[in-house]
Design a protein around this nucleic acid. Sequence first.
DNA 1: ACAAAATACTTTGGATATGAACTAATTTGG
DNA 2: CCAAATTAGTTCATATCCAAAGTATTTTGT
Lengths: 166, 166
Amino acid sequence: MDNLPLDAETKALEAPHDHKDELRLWLRLLTCTTLVETEIRGRLRVQFEVTLPRFDLMAQLEKAPDGMALGEVSRRMMVSNGNVTGLVDRLVENGHVARRALPADKRVQVISLTPEGRSEFARMAIEHEAWIAEMFAGVSPRKVGMLLDLLGDLKRSVRKAIEDPT
Amino acid sequence: MDNLPLDAETKALEAPHDHKDELRLWLRLLTCTTLVETEIRGRLRVQFEVTLPRFDLMAQLEKAPDGMALGEVSRRMMVSNGNVTGLVDRLVENGHVARRALPADKRVQVISLTPEGRSEFARMAIEHEAWIAEMFAGVSPRKVGMLLDLLGDLKRSVRKAIEDPT
DNA sequence: ACAAAATACTTTGGATATGAACTAATTTGG
DNA sequence: CCAAATTAGTTCATATCCAAAGTATTTTGT
């Protein structure tokens, strides 16, 4: 009934683990993200009367002083084009963002922070960084470094699985 | 102009790092989560015509054979009460979930999977686990274990920061 | 007992989000 | 050149999502 040696060898070679740990890891990753995101969302709303998606969009623009095409924003934020259109509409309306058509290619809308948007973002970004530091304070710098590395591996793995036809 | 020894000691004692790594870690965490979430959402839609929030809710109910109060679902999913109300409405409508009032406390709505909901979820859960395994395949089991530990630390740190008045 | 506080959920109004269909502008192939 | 394909955004319908206000029910304090 039992031919243990063969089984053991098969086991060792074929790495039979059942992926429960991977599933647990995914759920834990999601929990961490949701916890941080919910807290940040609330603080941004209370202290700056801004939503998280708007803050994220402004953060993208801060890194591009010469402005950025909507499609580029959409790719970087990993959200749909239609989503960005609406987000930008509201940010233009409240004066944080300016949009201009590119003369060379009239399909392209380039957006950038207005001076008011830039200074408002600067205020928010300082607080935002402090909030993250506070929430991550219980993890040593060494462990933060390890997490950066390991999540880098994870990111590569996920991207590969998504892009490859398999 | 420079009293280096003092500065150096102060530096060492007061942990002078500037939290840039923590910020990078947060952004990387968010990227990983978004990548996985977007892919899972798409596959659930194409292969099972179900949305991710509905899948998540059904996953909660699967773990509670005797049903669960709406508030408990809301807490576990970390979403608002009103959100759950609408989600359950639609899941009841399509026959995956049943709701009943608790006789002992008429405020409480207990929901549970219907037989159809349970078998449909079983089909989806098998695929779902395989998708995660596929996406995480590039990370060794050892690193998966390390990530589980480190994200456990992170989760505790974030929870502490959120709950404590500081 | 019973008014006040707390609890469980629903409703409401507004902001995200998506995918698909659509419009306008540019590139490409022949 | 110019029709066909591509590209960049917008619009549309629908589904989340939240915070705040509202409703019904139960518990509490006295």
